[in-house]
Each structure stands twice: as structure tokens, then as C-alpha cells.
């Protein structure tokens, strides 16, 4: 009893304050129409807020599925887009020339001399050797090895890469190579120096190889010069995609590649 009195002597004002405040708020909420409705509504407001927070978490957990379905959707759209410009389809079974297979990058390097990527698709999804890999904004690489579930891709950021490209609106083919160890720039060579290019022009694939379709955006011209005694430009190209930061890519299956290659081999001989 004495302890309680001592406690009250020390904290009496706080206790009285808290007790009487609670008491008056009980009165307010029970006997005042306005405050009562506000009280009920705002408790609903906070309950709703909690609900929406929870559902946001739930949607965050399902982001994976959403991502996958969006990638699939993207792939179908890209398929349509690429095939608009593709040559007339073969009269055989295939109605369109290019298939697009969405894939996820599960490992990639970009700061070595020869860079590689690994994708989570394989023969099960229809990926074959020598298929091109692109992202929404540009080139990624070429499938080199493939097994049932994975594909090994040689990045365009590779000393070996030679990709046939053109400056937009000109048909002259050039080779896109990677010289500096900078993942943002590549070099376009063997464009003749009489072609009137300027900084900012777009570089696209020209579809001369069987790997990439026509008109895939590669990048823009950042700088160019003519070496002494050379008749070709040396063009520095700023890549339009950020390869180190790419997560979703699309493997392009050119259904007529075999046919075209076989014919070219016979012709060359």
C-alpha cells in the first residue's frame, strides 16, 4: 500500500493525466456523433491501409510470375515486329521466318577480353547453336554451346565478334568489332569513306548473316575518323543497350538459316 502511494507521489500527475485522458476520450467517442464517426472511419482507414500494404507484399512475391508472363508477351510482340520486315516466308510449313524465345541471363561477364553469358533456356525450349541473342534495345551475342537446359552465349563484347552491320539508310555492310575494353562502345569498320555519315546516326544490323534479322538497333555513332592511307571509316559506336545490366534476353531462331547456309556453301564452292 505504501509502495503504491509512493509510486503515486512520484508519477501521480502522469497517471492522472493518462487515466483522465483515456476516460474523456471514451466519453468523446461514445457520446459525440461527429467524433464517433471519425473514429470509426479512421480505424477503418488504418485497417484498409494495412490491407493494401499486405496486398502490395503479395504482389511483390508474385513479381516473378508477372515478369515471366511479360517476357513471353514481349517475345510474341518482337516476333511479329521482326517478321514484318523479313523476306517473304518460305512456301513450306513455316509461316514466319523468325521465332523468338524469351530467356533469362543467369550468369554474365563483361569486363574480360572475351565475355560470355549463360541463359536459362536450352534445347528443350528449341534453342540451337548459332542463334542470335538480342535484348529489347540491342545485340547481346550468339549462342555457342547448348544443352538441354542451358545455353552458353558468346557476348558481342568479345575479341572474336564480327557482326555485319550498316549505318541506317545506307546498305554498305561493315563489321562490328570490340576493341576497347569498354562495354558501352564497339567499333564499326570497313564503311567506305565516301558515305556521308554524321555523329548520332543509327547503326543497325543488315541481316546479311543468318544470325540476326534486319534492322535490329545496335547503337549510335559516337565518333568517327579516317585512318591515313585507308579508304574506310573507323567508327566508334555507342551501344544502345546496357549489356552488363541486361536480365531478360530473346533468342532468335531463324528457321531458314539452314536452307540459306546450305545454298551459300554450294555456291561458294
Amino acid at each position: 500500500m505504501q509502495n503504491i502511494l509512493l509510486l503515486f507521489a512520484r508519477f501521480g500527475s502522469h497517471i492522472t493525466f493518462i487515466f483522465l485522458t483515456i476516460f474523456s476520450f471514451v466519453l468523446i467517442v461514445n457520446y459525440n456523433q461527429t467524433q464517433r464517426s471519425i473514429f470509426i472511419n479512421s480505424s477503418n482507414y488504418y485497417a484498409n491501409k494495412l490491407d493494401s500494404k499486405t496486398s502490395r507484399w503479395q504482389s511483390y512475391l508474385s513479381l516473378q510470375e508477372v515478369n515471366d508472363s511479360l517476357a513471353k508477351h514481349n517475345a510474341t510482340l518482337m516476333e511479329k515486329f521482326i517478321n514484318i520486315d523479313a523476306p517473304a516466308p518460305a512456301p513450306s510449313d513455316t509461316s514466319i521466318q523468325y521465332d523468338v524465345i524469351p530467356a533469362k541471363v543467369i550468369r554474365s561477364t563483361f569486363n574480360l577480353r572475351n565475355n560470355h553469358l549463360t541463359l536459362n533456356v536450352g534445347t528443350k525450349e528449341g534453342v540451337q547453336k548459332d542463334m542470335g541473342v538480342i535484348s529489347e534495345n540491342g545485340l547481346i551475342g550468339i549462342v555457342r554451346e547448348v544443352n538441354e537446359n542451358f545455353a552458353h552465349v558468346i557476348s558481342v563484347l568479345n575479341s572474336q565478334s564480327r557482326i555485319s552491320c550498316s549505318v541506317k539508310d545506307y546498305a554498305y555492310p561493315g563489321n562490328l568489332i570490340w576493341k576497347d575494353l569498354d562495354p558501352n562502345f564497339m567499333h564499326l569498320q570497313s564503311i567506305p569513306k565516301h558515305v556521308g555519315i554524321s555523329i548520332g546516326d543509327t547503326v543497325i544490323t543488315n541481316g546479311y548473316s543468318t544470325i540476326f534479322p534486319r534492322d535490329i538497333m545496335v547503337g549510335t555513332i559516337a565518333a568517327f575518323k579516317v585512318e591515313k592511307g585507308s579508304s574506310n571509316y573507323n567508327i566508334k559506336v555507342k551501344l544502345s543497350n546496357n549489356i552488363p545490366n541486361t536480365q531478360i534476353v530473346y533468342v532468335i531462331n531463324n528457321k531458314l538459316a539452314e536452307e540459306q547456309k546450305a545454298l551459300e556453301i554450294i555456291g561458294d564452292e
Binding site: 500527475s13 502522469h14 492522472t16 493525466f17 483522465l20 474523456s24 468523446i28 467517442v29 457520446y31 459525440n32
Partner: peptide
């Protein structure tokens, strides 16, 4: 308005 002035009075006293 039971409680409204009372809670204000309590607060002011504190």
C-alpha cells in the same frame, strides 16, 4: 460534447 472540453482540461492541467 461530453469529453471534449474535459480532455482539453486534463491536457492543460498536465
Amino acid at each position: 460534447s461530453p469529453g471534449v472540453h474535459a480532455s482539453a482540461g486534463v491536457f492543460t492541467g498536465y
